[in-house]
Design a protein around this nucleic acid. Structure first.
Lengths: 129, 129
DNA sequence: ATTTGACCTTACTGCTACTGTAACCTTTAC
DNA sequence: GTAAAGGTTACAGTAGCAGTAAGGTCAAAT
């Protein structure tokens, strides 16, 4: 299976897959006689694992570590839970920050008439704090 | 007023202020005889404007455009409102995405015992989708 | 047999919004 | 005189890719 098929099966782009290999997020793919990368089920599973971790917002580095942990028979769920809880914490912080932005934005957008006048509460907010 | 004082007054770093100038987000600061950048009230106001726009999540590019608009006597509040509404929309999308992540994370973290066993619902989620 | 188009390869650049580092000059305090 | 604190430019690094160039390969149509 060539990289384009692996891309279709995983929903990643060929470029992204090569990038993951270059960054050593996944082990290097085997090569055919023509030098093309070859993908088997095992490699596809690794790619999907990374994709799912990324979809939950984990960094590539964290996704990589989680993949290694998942392959470690000596692992403990405590180690995984700790990483997930930390990530959950940062996600919650991001949400709070964005919600504060949204609240302020909704406030000033609601006050702005949006007409052809120069006066604008949005600019007032940015000018005066 | 040297750049370090401008940094203290605005809460930006000296590096950030130089970066904004280099990126032409703000007009270049006047220079003293020694070549040092000099900041007056007007420049400080511009820096604060950018800082406030960034705090609301606007990109540097958008912040720059908003600054230009704010200085344009021909401006209309409609132009500002449009930019703000678009931004608000993307902020809302980001919030939704993060909330979905959080919901899934909270679900699997809640199911994970976090003990010294290998079994882990978090890894199950990443492995099986 | 050749040409076309789709695919593959590596290598390099660009994106956002900075931060860090290096090498060097100026000012200020002691 | 000297040392600390601040200023200057310029270049590299960060995250996670996407875009582009220049070229090799493969399968099918002509």
């Amino acid at each position: 299976m060539n990289i384009a098929d692996a891309a279709k099966h995983t929903g990643l782009s060929s470029k992204t897959i090569r990038y993951y290999e270059q960054q050593q997020i996944i082990p290097p793919a085997k090569r055919g006689d023509n030098g093309y990368r070859q993908y088997d089920k095992e490699q596809l599973e690794r790619l999907l694992f990374i994709k799912r971790a990324r979809a939950l917002g984990f960094s590539l580095s964290d996704s990589h570590e989680l993949l290694l942990i998942s392959q470690d028979s000596e692992r403990t769920s405590a180690a995984v839970k700790q990483k997930a809880e930390r990530h959950l914490h940062t996600v919650n912080q991001q949400i709070e920050q964005l919600q504060q932005m949204r609240d302020v934005l909704e406030g000033v957008v609601g006050q702005c008439l949006g007409d052809d006048q120069a006066h604008c509460p949005i600019l007032d907010k940015l000018t005066q704090g």
